[in-house]
Design a protein around this nucleic acid. Structure first.
Length: 275
DNA sequence: AACAAGACCTGCATGC
DNA sequence: TGCATGCAGGTCTTGT
């Protein structure tokens, strides 16, 4: 589920709830997510005070005053949000954090593709999962020149290459379809065949789509909610994603949006506007 | 090195 | 009603 906008929205919500608070109790309910949880997780978290909540790609980074950082990835179906103080843990609440002020935060993930890990804050950049990540979409490092050199010679479709977190960090299946639509690029084009003029449209299109979604609180299709439990509303602004057979913005014809499968994943596009 | 396919999970919608 | 099937916002691992 969660791509950059959903993770960013979650981070912003968690910042308000967590920063400056001490972790009074940490309950690990299901120890096996994508990887087995570190055995020392609860021990290292309990009693620590949260100094920061930030994001790198689709990872949530929770910085503690004991020199450790909790790394959270939401996988396909994960969420982190507040639950009522007396409420019993729900199914798939794998980790429950109780703060000294009695606020409780759960990590809930039915499919368990998510992960939790603990890392020394000082060596965070070298973490095995963070080190290979490409530039953040809103950073100066994401330039037309960078993309041109990353895509050069690649025969894989631009759709699949943009899902590669080593190329650009944070895009997922929804926002790649949306960004390609707004840049007028056909998703099946070989990545290496894109012209500089097209990359010049792609970079701002990526930023525009992500920014609009963050503003809408992310996309809520089935699982996702913000940290305070509220839904996101970007699904109401989809140009093409999940809209097979419907008109795209700017096409007069009904049925302009096509659905194809690339690398086993759904892609949506308008064959009239995307070449 | 680049690329494709398989693997990991649960839940839900669909169709028989 | 039950059951089988396919699909879902991710990404690591394995094999060609």
């Amino acid at each position: 589920m969660p791509e950059l906008p959903e993770v960013e929205t979650t981070v912003r919500g968690l910042q308000k709830l967590l920063v400056g608070q001490r972790l009074a109790a940490v309950q690990v309910r299901v120890p096996k997510l994508r990887f087995p949880l570190p055995k020392s997780l609860a021990r290292n978290l309990t009693g620590a005070t949260i100094e920061s909540v930030t994001r790198r790609a689709k990872y949530i980074l929770i910085g503690l005053d004991n020199g450790k950082t909790l790394l959270v990835h939401l996988g396909m179906s994960g969420r982190m949000h507040q639950i009522a103080p007396m409420q019993a843990p729900a199914k798939h609440d794998h980790l429950v954090l109780r703060l000294a002020n009695d606020v409780r935060i759960t990590f809930n993930d039915p499919r368990r593709f998510g992960l939790l890990d603990l890392c020394s804050t000082g060596t965070l950049p070298q973490h095995k999962l963070l080190a290979p990540l490409g530039p953040e979409p809103f950073s100066r490092a994401l330039t037309v020149a960078y993309l041109a050199s990353s895509l050069r010679g690649r025969k894989t479709s631009i759709k699949q290459v943009l899902l590669d977190q080593r190329v650009v960090a944070g895009l997922g299946n929804i926002y790649v379809s949306e960004a390609l639509f707004w840049s007028g690029i056909h998703p099946a084009r070989a990545a290496g065949s894109l012209k500089a003029a097209e990359l010049q449209k792609l970079v701002p299109a990526i930023q525009k789509v992500l920014k609009a979604s963050i503003k809408a609180g992310g996309t809520s299709m089935r699982d996702y909610v913000q940290a305070d439990g509220a839904m996101g509303f970007f699904q109401d602004q989809f140009a093409v994603y999940d809209r097979a057979g419907l008109p795209c913005p700017g096409c007069n014809c009904k049925k302009s949006v096509q659905h194809v499968v690339q690398g086993g994943r759904s892609t949506y596009f308008c064959p009239k506007k995307q070449r």
